[in-house]
Structure formats: C-alpha cells, structure tokens
Nucleic acid binder design. Structure first.
Lengths: 218, 218
DNA sequence: ACCTGAACACCGTTCAAGT
DNA sequence: ACCTGAACACCGTTCAAGT
C-alpha cells in the first residue's frame, strides 16, 4: 500500500474527491463511506483525515467540485433571453454530469465560492437590462429556485437513472386515474410522463415572459 | 419496557413516525437512527421492524406525514391569483412546521398519494382559467419547482434555524465584497440577506404575471 | 401476535504509533 | 510529514427466541 502510494505520488484532496464522485455515480450517495473511498484510492481509511476534516467536509467538496466543473457561458454576444437559457443549460449540464452527486449542490447550503461565477454572470445579464442590484438579486433568486426545483426533479429519479421519463407524483397512470381526484385522473397521462428538457424550456419561457414584463414596466 | 408498552397500548406505525419527526426537529435528520427512535418510543430497536420495513420506509413515512398535515385551502371563492398564493402559503406552512423533516418531502420522490389533494386543487385553479389538462400540468410543474427551490432555501438554513436571514451564497457581506466579482461585490448587501417570505411573494408575483400573459394569449 | 437478546458487518472518528 | 493498526461507540438489519 505504502508502495502503491509512493508510486502514484502523495495522496491529495483532489484525488479523494474524484474517487468519491466516481464512487457515488457507481453506487449511489447513500452507499458512500469513508472506508469505501479509502479502498478505492488504495489507502487505509484513516489516511483520508489528513486531507478531509469530516465526512461532511468531503460531501461539501464533492458538491463544490461539480459546481466548479460547470462551464459558465460567454454571454456578451447574446440577447438576455439567450443568455439566461445558456446559463440554465450550462448548470443543467454540470448537474447531469454527476446526477448522484447533484443533491449535494442542489440541497446543501451553497456558500461556495464555486457558485460565484454563475451568480456574477447572471447578475451581469440582469443589470445590463436596467435592473438595480437589489431587483437583480430577487430575480436571480427566483431563477435559481426554479432551476434547483426543476433539476432536483430530473435528477431525483435517483437510482441509477431508472427510467428516463418519470412521474411527478404517483407512479403509474392507472394509479392516478383511480386516485379519486377527478382532475388528477383527467391528467393522468400527462402527469405520468415528464420530458425534463421540455419542462425546463417551458419554465424558462414563463420566467422570461415575467421578466420581460418587469423590464418593460421600469 | 414491556409494561410501559402494554400500559400505553400497542406500538403503532403512527406513533413511530411521530416520534421520529419529533426527534428530527430536536436533533436534526442526520442524528436520526432507528435505535434513537426506538428509545424515544420506549421499545427495543428491533420492535420497529414490525411496523416499518426499512429506515428508508420510515423516512418516506415521515415526509408523507408532513405533507398529509398540510391543510389545502378552500379556493372556490378566490381569484386564481389568490388561490395560487393561498396554496403556496399552505405548503410553506406545512414545511415550516417541520423544517428538519422538510428535505424528506422536498427532495425525495413525491410519489405519495399525500401530494394529490394539493395537486388536484392546483389543477382545478389552472383549468378553471381555461388551460387544457396538458398545459395545466406543465404550469403546475413550474409552480412546484419554484416552491420547492424556494422552500429548500428557506429551510436549508439547516441547523436549528440558525439565523433568520441567511445568505444565498457566501457567508458575510465582506466575503462577497472581496470576492473579486464586481457585480457580486456591488450586490453584497442584498445577497447576504434573505427575507424568505418576501422572496416567496416576489417569485409568486413573477409566476402570476407569466401565467396571466399565457391565459390572455389563449 | 408482538416484543426482545444476541449477533452480524459496517460506519465515522480517535489516538498513539510506525516510517 | 504522511500513513497505519487497533480500538471506540454507534449504525442498520438478521434470526431465533421468548411471552
């Protein structure tokens, strides 16, 4: 073991985080343990503690890494509508690259510097349209809340991408049709299918419409 | 122990779920274990397995219970704007009643029948304004994504309601001002404060504006 | 039918010890 | 400085056993 280590060079925080991310995508986040990560990295569990304060610290670092890997688009030459769509796309791509790790950045406190490039660019788009810093922050929060809710739904199809089209609520159309709720029954077919990309586009269109009105009013 | 049991009557799934919810609010979700729940209920760990398949099954039941406790408002006499606001309010109240358990219903798959009353009422409001079942489902999903993202932010101030005003991203205004991102620095004050109720209202207003436009167009 | 004792493999984390 | 062995209290879960 010590040999394999020296052969590969020193252990590092980055190597540990990468191993943890790889493990999470293979086996799921619940299966992740420091013991398993250590195994994968070829080291004994306790060695991790030189690079990682905690299991929680590791989880934070994983979320951070996923967010850092996001490529923030160049928005200079775009309309604001295109820019917001491109930002959403880039965020979605980063999340989909690590669906099992995604909850770490979607649900843990985003206090990471890693989120700032995206925030900065979004604020640039919004303020370039005449919003004040204050208004831009409110609009940013609505935008992010929508993105998080939408991506959580997409990625919350937790176990290993079970099926591509997943229900909003109860499983089968039949269960919904027999639920005893007339409008749910009417919409059973629609409710039991979810095209994540289309839903994202639909929501972005609503968001854009609302923002356009707000911009016009100012 | 057996005495205490028979004195109180039989153990039940509901009693276990209630104890688990109470424990989660006191000690946090990460501290929740079947051993601790059993302790609280006055029983040995293994007794729980007669009422609960799994720890996961218990967590599902907890989320379900929180959602079931939601009082769906009577919307008959309201405008659709008021109805959507009342629904959001009711959902928010249910979530805030169990902030530590909230992630269970906000991030786990909502396949629960418990969500159907709220879905039914929302669909009623939307279709009453002339939306087709299909359109109503799309709009519903945007609405729910926004609510989930927003409430997750509010409640994600995880540990025991640490502070009422919480940051979107990096902690202190100072850290944001020194982040090297000019627009983030400009908005540092706004970014470091978050009035959750006001943000919810702001987002609902945007959602309502977008929906109004969509209704007018059809 | 309902609860328990004993036991399992596994977990996060510590501390003192090796090189 | 970096890694490890031994050990800790605690997990989720099982199985066979009590009443």
């Amino acid at each position: 073991m010590a040999q394999r280590r020296t052969a590969r060079g020193l252990l590092s925080r980055g190597e540990i985080v990468d191993a943890a991310l790889a493990f999470a995508e293979e086996a799921g986040l619940q299966a992740l343990s420091l013991h398993k990560v250590a195994d994968r990295v070829g080291v004994r569990t306790m060695s991790l503690y030189r690079y990682v304060r905690d299991k929680d610290d590791l989880l934070d670092a994983m979320g951070d890494a996923v967010l850092t890997a996001m490529t923030v688009p160049e928005v200079e030459s775009m309309t604001w509508e295109e820019a917001l769509a491109a930002l959403a796309d880039a965020f979605r791509a980063a999340v989909r690259a690590h669906p099992h790790a995604a909850p770490l950045l979607l649900t843990r406190r985003i206090n990471a510097p890693a989120s700032l490039p995206m925030v900065e660019t979004t604020l640039k788009v919004l303020t370039s349209q005449g919003l004040s810093a204050k208004e831009a922050v409110h609009v940013l929060r609505v935008y992010i809340a929508f993105l998080i809710g939408t991506l959580l739904r997409e990625v919350g199809t937790a176990p290993t991408y079970a099926s591509d089209s997943s229900a909003l609520s109860a499983g089968s159309p039949d269960a919904l049709a027999d639920s005893g709720f007339p409008l749910v029954a009417d919409a059973a077919t629609e409710l039991s299918v979810c095209d994540h990309e289309a839903e994202m586009k639909f929501g972005l269109a609503m968001f854009t419409a609302a923002l356009r009105e707000r911009l016009g009013a100012s």
